[in-house]
Write a protein that binds this DNA or RNA. Structure first.
Length: 467
RNA sequence: UCCCCGUUAGCUCAAUGGCAGAGCGUUCGGCUGUUAACCGAAAUGUUGAUGGUUCGAGCCCAUCACGGGGAGCCA
């Protein structure tokens, strides 16, 4: 194990003169007449350690297998680098090769790989510049999220991954079963004869992978005041886009004693905080994204951190779109949901920064959102970001028992299935609000990466669960 | 799921229906410290799969598979 202080990121900021052991994987190698150069990376930072091997200092048969992809430990003396590009370099004394990588068949080259090719070698893409940067940022972002909430006294709650209530209603769900799919038990007689007999299944009823932890988080908010979830979420939708995954991570804060204004304040503070934290933690990685992936990304992030988000009620947003003079593929009128093209127009053309749209028509939003007094709209908010569209969706929740019961009946949902959700409104109900945020969507925003499959270690999408 | 585009060397891409090509990588050689090093040479192909049209198909047609972009669903 590499001890604290022994990572390449530590070695790179050490003062010259020491003898050190550097562990890692060879990224590239350059040979000259009397000297060899190796770029060594252990994943601890974007920069490589340049190792200098004087001719004759290392046995020929060792040197021969120190090629791109090989895993090595190099003992050497840290010296001031005479050339530009790095402050210090390692003059090799001894090299131990843990694992060779045959040059003729090692798939990673020094240059020009497409994201699609790298995705096909997800077991090796982690060693590339791009994916090293992506996954360091992912780690820093996850940590920043916990830091943000913990600093504010939010409790982290682990909501279930398996749910036996199919009442979440946020999209198609994956079934979870131990029944023998080749020989499914069926109900023998009665009105349901011939249907699957779930009483014989593991949970005694149909079970699914969660599509949201929100309803469970509400339970905790009505006891611990401020809570958040951060865990995997599953959608069985046949979505084939650069913005969808079948398995993704979601963050869902839920706050008691909170209205829509408080919800929006938290959402904005959240985005600014986590983006700022990642900018502090991963400057080298973000510079790389700015240089090679999207040269507007640093400017965009600075902008988000330093400027207030735009707020616009749905009704006003519709008016802006109607008066834009644009021709839309999907018509704009009060009551219609905003389409991708509309969201992009608002964020990229009208405001050129994140926009929070509020107070949507009740018909196009979920039953649990709190009704406004106008009877037409609900206290919902979507945070829209340039390039990626909706990044946060949230609302104040309906805390009034009678109103919620009406909404459930109106939506033709099962009262019985929501018994506990209703009962929360009967015993010590409180105004409360929250939002949901796709972790990988935020990763896209932070890195400038174009495809969501390239910001999660091992993407699961329709037809693909490799690695 | 719908629309459009694509699939040729390890990678990125060329190739009027008529001999399968380049750059990068790899290998070998050269080069006084390189930074996606440089210079020279060589090797590398079941043109995604299955049918069809044709004297002849990488190229035209059909079906399928996979990938990309857009849309829907949504986070």
């Amino acid at each position: 194990m590499i001890a604290k202080g022994g990572y390449i990121k530590d070695i790179l900021v050490s003062s010259p003169g020491r003898t050190v052991d550097a562990h890692g994987w060879v990224k590239t190698r350059r040979d000259s007449k009397g000297v060899h150069f190796i770029q060594l990376n252990d994943g601890s930072c974007f920069a490589d350690l340049q190792v200098v091997i004087e001719a004759g200092s290392i046995p020929e048969d060792t040197l021969k297998v120190v090629t791109t992809g090989a895993c090595v430990r190099i003992t050497g003396v840290l010296t001031e680098s005479p050339a530009a590009g790095q402050a210090v370099e390692l003059k090799a004394i001894a090299i131990h090769v843990f694992g060779v990588a045959d040059s003729a068949s090692y798939p990673l080259q020094k240059k020009g790989h497409t994201m699609e090719f790298l995705r096909d070698i997800a077991h090796l893409r982690t060693r590339s510049n791009t994916f090293g940067a992506v996954f360091r940022v992912r780690n820093a972002l996850a940590f920043a999220i916990h830091t943000f909430f913990q600093d504010r006294g939010f409790q982290y709650v682990h909501t279930p991954i398996i749910t036996a209530s199919d009442c979440e209603g946020a999209g198609a769900m994956f079934g979870v079963t131990t029944l023998d799919m080749q020989n499914v038990p069926r109900i023998a007689e009665g009105p349901n004869a011939g249907k699957v007999d779930y009483t014989q299944d593991f949970f005694g009823k149909p079970a699914f992978l969660t599509v949201s932890g929100q309803l469970n988080a509400e339970i905790f908010a009505l006891a611990f005041s401020n809570v958040y979830t951060f865990g995997p979420t599953f959608r069985a939708e046949n979505s084939n886009t650069p913005r969808h995954l079948a398995e993704f991570w979601m963050i869902e804060p839920e706050m008691a004693f909170c209205d829509l204004a408080g919800d929006m304040e938290l959402a904005e503070a959240f985005l600014k905080s986590v983006i700022g934290q990642v900018m502090d933690a991963c400057p080298g990685d973000l510079e790389f994204f700015n240089k090679r992936i999207d040269n507007t990304i640093l400017e965009t992030l600075e902008n988000v951190v330093n400027n207030d988000f735009e707020h616009v009620p749905y009704t006003e947003a519709v008016r802006i779109l109607e008066n834009s003079g644009q021709s839309w593929e999907f018509p704009v009128f009060w009551g219609a949901d905003l389409q991708s093209e509309h969201e992009r127009y608002l964020t990229e053309q009208t405001f050129k920064k994140p926009v929070i749209v509020t107070d949507y028509p009740r018909e196009i939003k979920a039953f649990y959102m709190r009704a406004n007094d106008d009877g037409k709209t609900v206290r919902a908010m979507d945070v829209l970001a340039p390039r990626i569209g909706e990044i946060i969706g949230g609302s104040q929740r309906e805390e009034r028992y009678d109103v919620l019961l009406d909404k459930i009946r109106e939506s033709e949902l099962s009262e019985e299935a929501y018994w506990w959700y209703l009962e929360l409104r009967k015993f010590g109900s409180a105004p409360h609000a929250g939002f949901g945020l796709g972790f990988e969507r935020l990763m896209l925003y932070l890195t400038g990466m174009k495809n969501i499959r390239d910001v999660i270690p091992f993407p699961r999408t329709p037809g693909t669960a490799e690695f």
